[in-house]
Design a protein around this nucleic acid. Structure first.
Lengths: 184, 184
DNA sequence: TAGGCCATGTAACCGGTTACATGATTAG
DNA sequence: CTAATCATGTAACCGGTTACATGGCCTA
């Protein structure tokens, strides 16, 4: 399956009607934010194509004092398409980390900068933990809960390791700096 | 910093001279494969631009029975640029998982398909563990070793959790199927 | 009164992939 | 004889981001 904005829209609309604006909120803050962080520039065109292809329909709702909303609903064809995609074996996870690149090149970075990078990374992990916790708090959906708990486990395990082993990484930078000093 | 192919090339050339072909090998199989999985179509243009910008130089080496190789070396300006990039605080990791999407929608998938998806995922994790282990075996570089050990920890922790908690996910699919049957 | 939220959409750009083009050597 | 490995490079395409365009309401 293609973990793209199109599929993201379909996955959200499977469970609820939504506007493009709401889909973006769900994808950046809500229970779908583990997968994609889609922007308006990709969501609106994706919804347009989905409608052309007959996988969703839309109706407009005028509001007083607010812009009109265009509410999208999934069609039966859309449901079928999404379920077919779900039944494909999952492709490999994508993981890209600048922090690991810095870690790998620790010898080239000042010791305090390495410490700062670790601090930044720990902060990011904390923010992710907090976010998942808040999703869990007001979500009864069993699949989502399972995924959140899995995420919580992985991230806190990663945080633990980093906390306990950061000194070894910082030592690499310090030793390299000392070796450079000695060479002068 | 921008974890793009340009930076990948710079990071490799910081430690060794290399051809475009070798950079691709390193990025898909070697010790750099945790970050990017770059293709020729992005590497060769990136090297060209890097040379234009004076961050790398190249010399050609003709070989008997093989095509000529274009060997790239980093310049002093290239070294400086890379170190400056390394000293920037790391941006958030990127993580995209089709498996988690399937898990979140477990209720919509046949129980045997969920089991198959878990099996696929476990296989991917095993492959990653094996790959990192093989990198560790013939690499003495301390930063790389630290990163590999970190990766090993995170992936085996993820694998453990999945092995121990897969039944709960499979149960979601089974219960949903049972509920659908009862509704008929 | 400044900034954030609601709400839709387009256009320019960018960083990548895939496929194509070429061609000799070597191992199975 | 076939497929893989070595080796470079281009062109078409694609899926996304960022910025722009518009505009009213509400809150600090």
């Amino acid at each position: 399956m293609g973990m793209n904005v199109r599929t993201l829209c379909l996955s959200i609309l499977y469970f609820q009607e939504a506007t493009g604006y709401e889909i973006r909120k769900l994808s950046t803050e809500g229970r779908f934010s583990h997968f994609v962080d889609a922007s308006f520039g990709s969501i609106y065109p994706a919804l347009g194509r989905l409608e052309q292809d007959g996988l969703v329909t839309s109706r407009e709702e005028t509001q007083i004092g607010k812009p009109a909303r265009k509410i999208f609903s999934i069609t039966e064809a859309g449901r079928q398409t999404f379920i077919e995609e779900l039944n494909q074996p999952p492709s490999q996870d994508v993981f890209r980390s600048e922090f690991l690149m810095i870690g790998m090149c620790a010898e080239l970075v000042d010791a305090p900068r390495i410490a700062a990078a670790i601090e930044t990374r720990l902060g990011q992990l904390d923010a992710e933990l907090e976010h998942i916790t808040s999703v869990l708090e007001d979500c009864e959906h069993p699949g989502t809960r399972w995924v959140c708990e899995y995420g919580l486990h992985c991230i806190s395990s990663s945080k633990d390791y980093l906390t306990k082993n950061r000194a070894r990484l910082e030592a690499i930078a310090e030793q390299a700096a000392a070796a450079r000093d000695a060479a002068e």
